[in-house]
Design a protein around this nucleic acid. Structure first.
Length: 404
DNA sequence: TCTGGGGTCCTAGGACCC
DNA sequence: TCTGGGGTCCTAGGACCC
C-alpha cells in the first residue's frame, strides 16, 4: 500500500490532500474542531519531545522527511508539515479491507504486516497461456484487477510488482510508487535490477550495505559480478550464498499463507529517562502496566508463554535483554510480572532508562498445552534448569506501584 | 533535537544428554 | 595425557523489516 497510514488519514481529512502530512509522535495532537466547522491541525513546528515518523505523505517526502526519522529532525526540514497521531485500530480495519479485496481476485496470500502482502498468481486462470507459457498480458490484467478491487473497497492506491519470485516482486513493487504496476521477467534482470543499489534487496540493511560498499559493491550488478567464493569468504557460508543468489535474481521461497506467532511483546519509551531508584514508583507502575497489556494480548490471541523476557534501553541507547524459561507456560499478569521481575534483578540499573519492554515467547496454545495438557510431566532434557512457575511474591525491583 | 513499537531470523556459546 | 561427536535447549545480542 502507498504511504498507508497517511493515506488512510487523508480519507478522513480530505482537506489535507497534497499537503505534507506525517504520522507519528505520542498523543496530544488530535485535530481540533473550530467554531467555523473547519479543523485545526498540529504541525511539526509545535512538537516537542520524543518520537519518530511512522509514515509521511509523498508531499512531505519531497522535503526529505521519511519513516523512522526523529520528529525533531523532521521539524527542522519541514516545520509546516501537519502532524497526526497514529490510529492503529483504523489502519487495521483498512488492512483487513484491502486484503479481503485482493483475496477476491487471488486468494493465495502471504501476510507481511499491516500494509504489505505477497500474492501467488501462478495457478490463477489466465496467468498462463494454453501452452503453459507465461502470458504477460494475462498476468498484467489480473494485477490490474487487484488494484481496481483494492481501490473500490478502500479508496486507497497500492503498488504491485509481478515477477517470478518474492525477491524480485518486492523490488519491482517499489520501482513505480505510488500507484504503480511493474512487470519484470528473468530476461529483464540485467537491465532493470542490476543498476539498482544493493540496499534495495530485502534483507540488506545498513550494516550489510556498508560492508558491501567497503568492498566496492554498490549495485546489485556489481554484486552479481563477484565470485560466489569471495562473498562466502567475506560474509560466511550462509549469507554469502544468499547474497549471490539474490544478485542473480534467484529466490525459491514459497508464498507462505499461514504461520504461528513466535512472540508477543509490549514496550514503551518514556517521555524522559527514568532512574530505577529515583523513579521507582513510576517505573514499577509502567512495568506492571506492560505486563497487564501483555497478559491481555496473550489471552485475546489464545496463547500461553513458557519464556518471559524483559528489554531495557539505557540513556546511551544501549539495549539489553534478559529472559527466563519456566517449566509451565503462564498467561496471567501476576505470573508474567513476577518472572519479568526476576529477569530485572539480573541487570545493572545504575544508568537511566529510556525504554522498558516485556516479551512472551515459547508460545503454546492456551487450550492444548503440549506435554503438560496431555498428561506428560514436563520432561527436562538438557539446557539450563527451567524453574517452576510460582505464584507472585512481593514485587521485585520497581517496587512501590499501587497494588494491583 | 537523538533514534517508536511490533515483530522475525540468525549466530554463538554453554549446559546437558546419549 | 589430552580435548569424542552429535543433538537439543536456553540465553543474549544483533540485523533487519513493516
Amino acid at each position: 500500500m502507498d504511504a498507508f497510514y497517511a493515506s488512510v488519514e487523508l480519507l478522513r481529512y480530505p482537506e489535507l490532500k497534497g499537503l505534507p502530512v506525517v504520522i507519528g509522535g505520542r498523543r496530544r495532537h488530535q485535530p481540533q474542531p473550530q467554531p467555523d466547522g473547519s479543523r485545526r491541525f498540529a504541525t511539526l513546528r509545535e512538537y516537542t519531545g520524543r518520537g519518530v515518523i511512522t509514515t509521511a505523505t509523498y508531499a512531505a517526502r519531497a522535503f526529505g522527511v521519511n519513516s523512522a526519522m526523529g520528529l525533531m529532525k523532521a521539524a527542522a526540514l519541514c516545520p509546516q508539515a501537519v502532524l497526526l497521531p497514529a490510529d492503529f485500530d483504523e489502519y487495521r480495519r483498512y488492512s483487513r479491507a484491502f486484503k479481503a479485496a485482493v483475496a477476491e481476485v487471488a486468494p493465495v496470500i502471504e501476510d507481511r504486516g499491516i500494509d504489505e502482502i505477497y500474492i501467488e498468481l501462478t495457478d490463477l486462470p489466465g496467468a498462463q497461456d494454453a501452452l503453459g507459457h507465461d502470458a504477460c498480458g494475462g498476468v498484467r490484467a489480473i494485477a490490474q484487477e487487484i488494484r481496481n478491487n483494492v481501490r473500490r473497497a478502500t479508496g486507497l492506491t497500492c503498488s504491485i510488482g509481478v515477477t517470478p519470485n518474492k525477491l524480485l516482486s518486492k523490488i519491482a513493487s517499489e520501482l513505480d510508487k505510488p500507484d504503480g504496476l511493474t512487470l519484470i521477467t528473468e530476461d529483464d534482470i540485467p537491465a532493470r535490477i542490476w543498476p539498482l543499489a544493493v540496499r534495495r534487496i530485502n534483507g540488506i540493511g545498513p550494516k550489510a550495505g556498508a560492508k558491501l560498499a567497503a568492498l566496492g559493491v554498490e549495485t546489485i550488478g556489481e554484486l552479481a559480478a563477484r565470485p560466489r567464493e569471495e562473498l562466502i569468504a567475506h560474509f560466511g557460508r550462509s549469507q554469502g550464498r544468499w547474497l549471490h543468489e539474490c544478485a542473480n535474481g534467484r529466490d525459491e521461497r514459497p508464498v507462505v499463507t499461514y504461520s504461528e506467532p513466535v512472540s508477543v511483546s509490549r514496550e514503551t519509551t518514556f517521555e524522559r529517562d527514568l532512574h530505577a531508584v529515583a523513579d521507582r514508583a513510576t517505573l514499577g507502575a509502567v512495568f506492571t502496566g506492560l505486563c497487564e497489556q501483555l497478559a491481555g494480548d496473550l489471552r485475546r490471541k489464545g496463547y500461553r508463554s513458557r519464556t518471559i523476557g524483559i528489554k531495557l534501553r539505557f540513556d546511551d541507547f544501549r539495549t539489553v535483554t534478559r529472559d527466563h524459561t519456566l517449566a509451565q507456560p503462564v498467561a496471567d499478569a501476576a505470573a508474567i510480572r513476577h518472572t519479568a521481575g526476576q529477569c530485572l534483578k539480573r541487570v545493572d540499573l545504575s544508568r537511566r532508562l529510556r525504554l522498558l519492554g516485556v516479551r512472551a515467547s515459547g508460545l503454546v496454545h492456551a487450550r492444548q498445552e503440549a506435554g503438560a495438557a496431555c498428561g506428560h510431566p514436563a520432561v527436562h532434557r538438557g539446557g539450563a534448569p527451567a524453574e517452576e512457575a510460582r505464584a507472585p511474591a512481593a514485587p521485585q525491583l520497581f517496587d512501590g506501584e499501587p497494588s494491583a
